[in-house]
Amino acid sequence: MKSMMEEEREERRDYLIGLAAAILLTAVPFAAVAFGWFPRGVDYAIIAVAGVLQIVCQFRYFLHIDLSRSKRDDLQLILFSGLICLLMVGGTIWIIFNQYAQM
């Protein structure tokens, strides 16, 4: 059994890791866009990768969701909501752009 002090230290460390990740993963895409070091396609890739990584980091370090067993199936709910979002967003974009192409 971990002592409360150990538990506190670990949780504090989680928030600090989260903050560091957030700063890094925000600063990189902003810098790429602000200074225009790369062609636009590379910028898009940097923005997408940094954005997804940052969302994963925030779920992990701020919302404390990980792959360990959870009584309440929180991760499954996230994955299901993610699926719903993907279907609706993907479907909307697919259909609207299909319509647009046919007009």
């Binding site: 971990k2 538990e7 949780e11 919302l63 404390h64 969701i65 959870s70 929180d74």
Partner: peptide, 10 residues
């Protein structure tokens, strides 16, 4: 060894 987690967040 791990914290008894019941819900998202702390």
């Amino acid at each position: 060894s791990s914290i008894d987690k019941k819900h998202p967040g702390l």
